[in-house]
Amino acid sequence: MASAQSFRDQLRTLTKCVCDGARMMVGQGDYGAYAEHIRRTHPDREPMTETEFFRNRENARFGVGNTSGFRCC
Rank of each mutant, 00 (worst) to 15 (best):
R39T: 01
T51M: 07
P47Y: 01
T51I: 11
A60N: 14
F53Q: 01
G29P: 05
E52I: 07
T67P: 14
L11G: 11
T13W: 08
E36I: 00
C19G: 07
A2M: 14
F53T: 06
M48C: 04
R71E: 13
P47I: 03
A2V: 15
V26L: 10
Y34A: 01
S3A: 03
M24P: 12
S3N: 05
M24E: 15
M48K: 02
R45W: 06
R57Y: 02
R12H: 04
S6K: 13
R55C: 13
R8V: 10
G21K: 06
A2W: 14
R23D: 12
H37S: 00
P47T: 05
K16I: 02
A4C: 15
L11F: 12
P43K: 07
A22R: 14
R55N: 13
M1T: 11
R61E: 08
G69V: 06
T15R: 09
D20M: 04
A60F: 03
V26R: 12
I38V: 05
L14P: 03
D30N: 04
S68R: 12
A22D: 14
L14M: 03
A60C: 13
E36V: 00
Y31E: 01
G27C: 03
M25C: 10
Q28S: 07
N66K: 09
F54P: 06
E58P: 05
R8I: 10
E52A: 12
D20Q: 10
E52R: 09
D30A: 02
A2P: 15
R40A: 08
C72I: 05
D30P: 05
V64Q: 09
K16S: 02
M24T: 15
H37C: 00
N56L: 11
I38F: 03
F53P: 04
F62V: 10
G32N: 05
A60Q: 14
C72W: 04
Q10H: 13
V18K: 04
M25R: 12
K16C: 03
R71I: 06
E36W: 00
G21I: 03
A2F: 15
F54Q: 07
